[in-house]
Write a protein that binds this DNA or RNA. Structure first.
Lengths: 195, 195, 195, 195
DNA sequence: AATGAATGAGAATTCATTCAT
DNA sequence: TATGAATGAATTCTCATTCAT
């Protein structure tokens, strides 16, 4: 009888939006962005196509919003690194967190890599990504020096590439990938005192 | 004007087919498979849409043929490894060849990764890929043991991931990536006698 | 706090209805009927879409009600002509009023002409329009005769067309159109004793 | 057996394009641009929706091409006026041609006025229209002076408005409009020596 | 009276593929 | 072999209208 309060509306909006994004992520990740139709998403989400456009301006906007959300997690993760004394404990935490994030939402990271390789979409994030990457370099450089690597810059690049490559392999076969072993090996390798 | 022999026809056919594949690879790599239309390919290749279908059964078949061709290069590369005595020289050659292949045709590898993450296409190659990967493991295992790694299996996995990650980074910014430096560093790291 | 009387409710209702119609007219005039969405109208009017449907049965009904309201002004204008002695003073007043009406609400007249040319809507008013047009002919015929035109019927037709054409031009560029000059010229031409 | 020559293709293209434009003009004129769907046009033209997009980039492009074609007729008509000695014979021809053009394709002129009142489309032609209108003013000014009008500029404006208004009335009821009578009356009025 | 979430029919547009020539 | 006209199914997106609250 009484009309819904704007808080109620807000909540409905928020929840449904989240729901659509989750369904979309799953489908995008599973079949790829282009091979997933709005019809399919709507059907899977149990809503009409029209409603989807009530929440997202376009299919691309939906994708970007999904990416953005995950991106922010990534940002938080990287930017949370204490820049003053990057020590073994920080490195251990960073590696552990990287794998945790990956394991937490492999479908997201599959989508992330898909989009990364699809020209035209990721350009928007290039700057952001470059910034956080630069931040990591700055922060960890002293650490890599302290670890006794001859060429810390190269080492950082290799470290980053290694993380990317491992992520890729995990994404492609999450069931068979020995995540724990690899994580521990990485921690061992990058956090133990070098002889 | 003697009629052309069927060999000549065959060769012309082959040439044109190759041309179409090259054009397609360029466009697929630049804009992505789904965002590249048959019309665009035909126009760019200087032929009609109809003729393209004379050479390839479908857009997907065209993609697969492109992938297949590059795949065979990859296979040749991996399977050429002499299985009997995989020594430093082999490893050095393998790494060098890997980077050479990458540098030779980055657009192909961009497409390769795109497809790798796009489910449904790569399944056809999973077996093949698994086989050559297995071959590399078998062949290099003794080498990694000999190199003194505590856990050679893990080491091989890391090595593979590192190559993947570096490839990815090179593909994403071929101009700024220090290919030579990294290649030499890898050779240094994996082919020098461990202290 | 005594409950508002039903008259007060009625008045509020009437006010809001009028407000919606004004907003709609403005938007219809500015972007055209089809290019103006109910959502846009509701937002611009500061109400919800649902409430709009409380006041008007449909988008078309809203349009018709707007047209109707303006139409009645037109009717009043034409039918107010005293049929008995249509003299120069009447003609002067008629012309002056015509321009005043135009100047008063050019957006309405733009919409009017839009709809006039859009088949299907104006059919409802064809009869009404024909009747008032006929009324004007009847009433002014003697006047045009008296003015000394050889062919009064043709003259009336030309006079009507001239008014239409001038209205059109005014609507299309209200800022640059020399309304006063033209009005005075028309009065001069149609109300002065012909030599 | 033998492939079609490019002339044949050219001809097919040209004829079909023309056909589509004719059908579209008829439907646009009859029901209005927005109320006419591409589906409807395609069905009426006996082709598939897809083919229509082979010939026209978009629905709007189709409209513009239709308008453009008619516009060029108009331009030719106006700009053909010999600027040196605009005499009675020219005026008579001009008026006669105006009515002929109107009678020749009333549906086009209905669409023309529709679009004229629909903001956003005609802006593209504003310049062109302004130029030809200016051309007519320049050319006919001396004539109107010679005709003995006190205020030739105003007279030209009235003349233009009269033509517009008559066109409008003719468009709205082509069957009952006394085209010949009006045309002759106009010629009489604007081409006879003023007493 | 009032809200805006939700619907669904239909709009424009794209594009791989076929086919007559 | 070669062309591009032609198709039709699928896709993204819009919007008037309804309805639960």
């Amino acid at each position: 009888m009484s009309p819904r309060s704007s808080e109620q509306f807000e909540q409905i909006r928020h929840q449904k939006q989240k729901h659509i994004m989750e369904v979309s992520l799953r489908l995008f990740g599973a079949a790829g962005y282009h091979s997933t139709s709005i019809s399919h998403i709507a059907k899977e989400a149990g809503i009409s196509k029209g409603l989807l456009y009530n929440y997202f301006d376009s299919k691309e906007a939906l994708l970007l919003q999904i990416l953005d959300k995950g991106m922010n997690t990534l940002f938080a993760h990287y930017l949370a690194i204490d820049p003053r004394h990057f020590n073994r404990e920080h490195m251990r935490a960073f590696i552990a967190k990287s794998f945790a994030v990956l394991q937490d939402n492999p479908v997201y990271w599959r989508l992330y890599f898909q989009v990364l390789l699809q020209p035209g979409v990721m350009e928007m994030y290039q700057d952001k990504l470059a910034r956080i990457y630069q931040h990591f370099i700055t922060v960890s450089h002293a650490y890599f020096v302290h670890m006794g690597f001859k060429n810390p810059s190269t080492e950082i690049l290799l470290f980053g590439a290694l993380l990317d490559g491992l992520s890729l392999q995990y994404i492609l076969s999450p069931e068979t990938f020995p995540l724990q072993t690899i994580r521990d090996e990485l921690i061992e390798r990058y956090c133990s005192p070098q002889t």
